[in-house]
Design a protein around this nucleic acid. Structure first.
Lengths: 209, 209
DNA sequence: CGGCTTGTTGTACGATCGTTCAATAGTGTC
DNA sequence: GACACTATTGAACGATCGTACAACAAGCCG
């Protein structure tokens, strides 16, 4: 008798997936492991366990661990920008309404989650010393910037003449949002998400004056 | 002949320091190693090499590596708050002048350094999963908040009546500063430090209106 | 059912991790 | 110069890291 090719219950021991699907599953497991264990979650063994696959599989689909982490960063960026873009698309066409939808999506689940923000911070910590992360950042960040800058440009058009410095306004609003994200993450009891939206809207209100 | 107790040149093989001095040297080496190697710089061997001491010395002065890292975080916080406090103390007593000094100190060397900001981000990445870091954060963060809130309270007094929500104003300004720090770190070519000061002062200008 | 492709497994390897601890040696005191 | 104290050294431990690779097996085709 040859060695059993199946488990005793007759089920297959594992499921083969198309490379594309497996790569996505590994990327999502990477992010989930990062949420659960912080920076220590970014190890082959933790990610493998999270994805319920063997240790060796990751290097079959990704050349190195760093490549997987970089792709996870890309996915995380795309998910954020995609959800914000969709929130804007579902809003009324008026610039102010679209900006409000953008802010409310920024400061409500699933984006405003302590785990999610902790994930961002770990990625940022890798940025300085990882060429891979830097490359993904340069490739994905403009999506976010363009979305926000486009809405501010629309607002400017509605107001009429050139009332504010578009470039500085975008930088300031982005910084305010990121900073409020960070503060809320470090101490969620310090203020309400609703108040973060208020602060950003007050900033926007005062742009034209 | 007994084994030589000195190096061939007659110099001592190492220098004994008082525990307090050695602890400080190890803390500074930790931060320097963190600047040079990012998160990977937070290992006993890297820190030991940076401090030019043996591997075993760290555990003689600190119970665990995490305790050393937490103390480094405390030192880093205290250095920042101390430099900002001194900048404020050296400024004219008018609230606006003190706030300006605070902002200019925030957005100029040595605080506005890519390495320094990268260090912050790594510490923040540890925050969620390290009780030690959380404890230090809760013990040191109020120094920063109190300094900034005190200046805003002075400004409010000067203006006269209760013109703005002090709590929200402090949260917003802190977030704006932190966010601008982060943005500048991720892309120093995006804007000038001077522009960051401008954005913060514009925020303050509009508080009273 | 037999053969083929290739997604998947799991052991093994060398490197590095944090920590321990007995031995060493710098430094002050007499 | 001898001694005591203890800061310091450096080897050693087990654990875990990322990666490589040979063997296995799931799924498909004829």
């Amino acid at each position: 008798m040859k060695r059993a090719r199946r488990k005793s219950n007759g089920e297959p021991r594992f499921e083969r997936k198309l490379p594309e699907a497996r790569r996505l599953a590994l990327i999502e497991a990477t992010i989930e492991s990062l949420k659960r264990f912080g920076h220590e979650g970014l190890s082959i063994r933790r990610i493998s366990a999270q994805a319920r696959v063997s240790i060796g599989l990751i290097n079959h689909h990704f050349p190195t661990k760093d490549a997987l982490v970089a792709e996870a960063y890309r996915h995380f960026n795309n998910e954020l920008v995609g959800s914000l873009r969709q929130a804007v698309a579902n809003a009324p066409p008026a610039p102010r309404a679209r900006l409000r939808a953008f802010l409310e999506a920024s400061f409500s689940p699933p984006n405003l989650d302590s785990d999610v923000l902790a994930v961002w911070v770990v990625f940022w910590g890798l940025y300085r010393h990882s060429k891979d992360i830097q490359r993904v950042q340069s490739e994905t960040y403009h999506g976010y910037v363009d979305l926000l800058r486009g809405m501010l440009a629309d607002l400017e058009r509605e107001v009429g003449a050139l009332r504010f410095n578009l470039r500085l306004a975008a930088i300031g609003l982005t910084s305010l949002i990121d900073g409020l994200w960070l503060e809320w993450c470090l101490d969620p009891d310090n203020f309400e998400p609703r108040e973060a939206v208020q602060l950003c809207e007050a900033w926007i209100d005062r742009l034209g004056s």
